[in-house]
Amino acid sequence: MIFQLDTHRVHFPDPALAEPDGLLAIGGDLHPERLMEAYRQGIFPWYSDDLPILWYSPHERFVLFPEELKISKSMRRVLRSGQFHITCNHAFAQVIAECASQPRRGQDGTWITADMQQAYLALHRLGKAHSIETWHNGNLVGGLYGVAVGQLFCGESMFSKEANASKAALISLCQSGAYRLIDCQVYTNHLASMGARMVSRATYMDYLRRLGR
């Protein structure tokens, strides 16, 4: 059963009631209060311009524990070379715009609509959404953004214009010491190669309860 959200009330159904593909609810809005309530319950929006707002909570979650991060020998050489300069929250708007320009997980278009960009920019201004930027010779060549829920970072998207640029951003995030769990949402080969793995909903929700304070 897919639930219709009330635009006048910030409330979500039990995430365990999501469809097999993770779809839980439809409608509502992207107000910061609703977005943060969603993340606190393990729910995130994922839709495109031709659809209403769709809210997902996968029955399994793809996560990365920073202490399990795998850095290849070749990547270690890249990091030692100093070719990249990493910053945090220096260019959030640029990062989300670059992520929007790249299709996600087999999609032809972007899921980061103009409304989504504005919603996450509002979260950023409130100190809830953050970006990691990778620079090369003064140019933004990679990065990622997501939402912080206590010591859990809900990664939303990443982009790369040069080889290894997004990896460098993710490594910096993991090594920052600010987070004990990175929520990668759904499986990708790229992140699996860096140590991300699937956990059950129950396991994810347990971490969310403990780390999301």
Results as ranks from 00 to 15, higher is better:
Q4R: 14
L5Q: 10
L5Y: 01
H8W: 12
R9G: 05
R9E: 15
F12H: 02
A16K: 04
L17T: 11
A18Y: 11
E19G: 06
E19F: 14
L23A: 09
L24Y: 06
L24F: 09
G28L: 10
G28Q: 04
D29T: 06
D29Q: 06
L30F: 04
L30E: 05
P32T: 03
P32R: 05
E33N: 10
A38R: 05
Q41D: 14
Q41A: 15
G42V: 07
F44Q: 02
F44Y: 14
W46V: 00
S48N: 15
D49M: 09
D49H: 04
D50Q: 12
S57Q: 07
H59E: 12
E60C: 13
L64C: 09
F65C: 01
P66C: 05
P66K: 00
E68L: 15
L69Y: 14
I71C: 01
I71D: 10
S72E: 13
R76G: 15
R77T: 08
R80Y: 06
G82I: 02
G82A: 02
F84Q: 09
F84I: 01
H85G: 10
T87I: 01
T87R: 11
T87C: 07
C88Q: 10
C88R: 14
H90F: 07
V95T: 01
C99G: 12
S101T: 12
G106Y: 06
Q107E: 06
Q107V: 02
I112G: 10
D115F: 00
Q117T: 01
Q117G: 15
Q118E: 15
Q118T: 15
A119Y: 03
Y120D: 11
Y120G: 10
Y120T: 05
A122M: 08
A122N: 13
H124E: 15
L126M: 13
I132P: 07
N139K: 05
N139C: 11
L140M: 13
L140D: 15
V141T: 05
V141M: 03
V141K: 00
Y145C: 03
Y145A: 01
G146Y: 08
G146H: 01
G146S: 02
V147S: 00
A148W: 02
L152E: 14
C154L: 04
E156K: 02
S157I: 09
M158L: 07
F159N: 09
F159S: 11
E162D: 11
S166G: 03
S176K: 00
S176A: 02
G177F: 12
R180M: 07
L181E: 08
I182Y: 01
D183I: 15
C184L: 09
C184F: 04
T188W: 06
T188L: 00
N189D: 15
L191T: 06
M194W: 15
G195H: 04
R197V: 14
M198F: 14
V199I: 14
S200T: 15
R201C: 08
A202Y: 03
A202H: 11
Y204K: 08
M205C: 11
D206L: 10
G212R: 08
R213H: 09
